[in-house]
Simulated scan of single mutants.
Amino acid sequence: MRVVIVGAGNAGCAHAAELSFRGHQVVLLKTSKSMHDANFERVLERQGIDVIDNPRHGERRFQPFHLATRDLDAAFSTRPDLVFVATQSTQHEVIAKLVGPRLSAGQLVVVSPGYMGSCYFRKYSASPDVIVAEGESLPFDARIVEPGVVNVLWENTRNALAFLPRSRSDEGLKIAQALLPRYVAARSNVVESAMHNPNLILHTVGTLLSASRIEYSQGEFWMYREAFTPSTIRLMERLDEEKKAIISRTKGEPSAYLEAFKFRNEQDLDMPALDVLRKYASEGGPKGPTDMTTRYVTEDVPMGLGLMASLGLRLGVPTPVCNSLVVLAGALLGTEFESKARTLDQLGFAGMSADEFVAVING
């Protein structure tokens, strides 16, 4: 397939490398100079990247790309079958405005993880015949370790997507599976997919309750190994109950965050879900965060918990734990995350009643 990957951070570089390795024609597009710029300059120079591939026993290789560029017109002149958006969710609307006018009928746009950012790409698309997929987690977990080198830490076993319009879910899933066979299921709607993003619960609770440990450790902190003690897990379960109530209200299919985590990460679905999290922590979970300005807070609180609070308010579903975590995060960082939150009004659902909103997202 011809693929344009938008975003050249940890996720963009890893997915460009892995998809190129699998035989796809990959263009890696960077649209800003805000982060990872030294790395991308090295990628531009070599038109590829060195990969440390832990899923393949630490194999190291140079992976060339069809094209690495900052030029939007050059990237889309390749007439991509699929556009994979791998930027932080805070940038979704900006990217949708840049990419939307260049989209054409028959293309699939994958926004992952989405936090309902897929709605921006429907809003700004030049063609009504574009299919947009909302992902809840990336197929590969990775970190850039030095300019021109990406370390692929983990490869998911399965991934689910939701589609806009919902009526084209079967068609969209078929295209996604041609890219990566690990896309195995279509969620009921984009709210279900957004709320099943594991970062909504794992990143936010794990980081906020570890604030003193993160700051004291001076970089020697492993959230997935250290944070999830019994009391922390009890809080996560309370937040998860609020999430499941929102999914149920939108006619989706709720499941526990640990069960969704197991679905993505473990071949053996009979394995206890908490054991799967422990396995991920020991085998592939990344080190960090190193400080409280991590995207685990600055992205997942306003884009994830903020969205969840907006959904709860619109749908009449109480979200006291979610709301408290937003306030706590703001107090810890000295900012007002409520004013930065992603809301349904921003996504194009202003003025809709709860029932109208549920009807629209279900097609």
Rank of each mutant, 00 (worst) to 15 (best):
L328S: 03
A14P: 10
N151S: 05
A74L: 12
M303N: 04
E266M: 14
A105S: 10
L108H: 10
A256N: 09
V321T: 11
P272M: 15
P139K: 13
E241I: 13
A350F: 04
D53R: 02
D275H: 13
A8E: 10
Q47V: 11
F84N: 02
A194W: 04
Y183G: 12
V3C: 06
F40P: 00
R168N: 03
R158D: 04
V4E: 04
M292S: 05
E266L: 15
P55G: 06
S112G: 11
V4H: 01
P286G: 04
S104Y: 09
D300T: 02
I49N: 03
S188T: 08
I144R: 00
E171Y: 12
H15I: 01
T207L: 00
F221L: 10
E45A: 13
R295W: 15
D345H: 06
T335Y: 15
L138D: 06
T250G: 10
H66A: 07
P147F: 06
A186R: 07
E136T: 11
F357E: 15
L311V: 00
L208W: 01
P198K: 12
R42W: 03
E171C: 07
A68Q: 09
S310D: 13
L325F: 05
S188N: 09
M35S: 15
V4R: 03
S137T: 05
P165M: 00
N54C: 12
A227H: 00
H36E: 14
H24N: 01
A142R: 07
I361T: 01
V3D: 00
T78A: 12
G312R: 12
L328Y: 15
Q91N: 05
V191N: 00
V321P: 09
V358G: 08
C322E: 11
V130S: 01
F21V: 02
L153R: 03
A186K: 02
E220L: 05
A281G: 04
V358R: 02
G172D: 05
S339I: 10
R264T: 13
A185V: 09
I201N: 11
I5N: 01
R61I: 01
L28H: 07
A133L: 02
G48L: 00
K243H: 12
L153W: 04
L333R: 06
V205L: 13
V360M: 08
P254T: 13
D240E: 10
V145T: 11
S112A: 09
E18M: 07
D355R: 15
S310A: 15
P289Y: 11
L305I: 12
A160C: 11
S127P: 10
G312P: 14
S32D: 12
V99C: 00
H15D: 08
T229Q: 13
R187L: 13
L311N: 03
V51N: 06
H36S: 14
P230S: 09
T290P: 08
D270L: 14
Y115Q: 03
G23V: 04
E226N: 07
A74N: 12
G330W: 03
Q267M: 11
I49C: 09
G334A: 07
A8K: 07
D345T: 07
E242L: 07
V149P: 02
N54I: 04
T90G: 03
A245S: 01
H92V: 00
E134L: 08
E266F: 13
A185F: 06
G206K: 11
T294S: 10
E242T: 14
T31M: 13
S188K: 13
